[in-house]
Amino acid sequence: MGTQNMISNVFKKYLAIGLVGITVTDRYGGVCPIRGSSMSPTFNPSVGSFTDDYVFLEKFCLDKYKFSHGDVVIFSDPTNYKERCVKRIVAMEGDYISNVGGVVKVPEGHCWVEGDNSASSFDSRSFGPIPLGLIHGRVTHIVWPPQRIRKIDRRIPQEGLA
C-alpha cells in the first residue's frame, strides 16, 4: 500500500511539473536548438561543429503581433507546417523589396524573411512573403554553448530595400 501511494505521489508531482512547464514554454518563452547554417554567422558560425546553438525564444510579442525590421523570428515553414525555420525579418507590410523577379510589395499582415547567410538559405526569396500568424516567437539570446552566450542584435540590413 505504501509503495502504491508513493508512486502515485511521484506521478502527481511530475504531472504538475509537466503542466507548468508546457504552459510557461507556450505562453512566455523557452529554449530551443538551431540547426543548419542558414543563419550563419549569427548562429552556428563554424561549419561542422559538434554543438548547435541553443537560443532563448520569447513569446510576449505574440500578444499583439508587433515585430520590427531586423528581428530574428522562428516560424513554421509555409510549405511544410511540421518544420520550423529561423530567419531575420527584412521587410514588414507595405515595404517594397527587390527580388529576383523584380520589386515586390509586401502585402498586409505579412513580412519578408531572409537568412543571414544568403548563399545557403531557403527563405522568402523562394516562397515569398509569409503571414505574421505563422511566427512562433522572437529570438533574443543565445544561451548555449557558454562561450557564445550573447544578446541577438536587431540588425537592419541595408541592401535589398528598395
Binding site: K64, Y65, Y81, P107, E108, G109, H110, P131, L132, G133
Partner: peptide, 19 residues
Amino acid sequence: YGKVGPGDVIIVRSPETPR
C-alpha cells in the same frame, strides 16, 4: 497531425490580420 481534409470546417488565423 494533418488529419483534416476537404469539407471540414476549420478555424484559421487570418493571413492579413494575425490577431
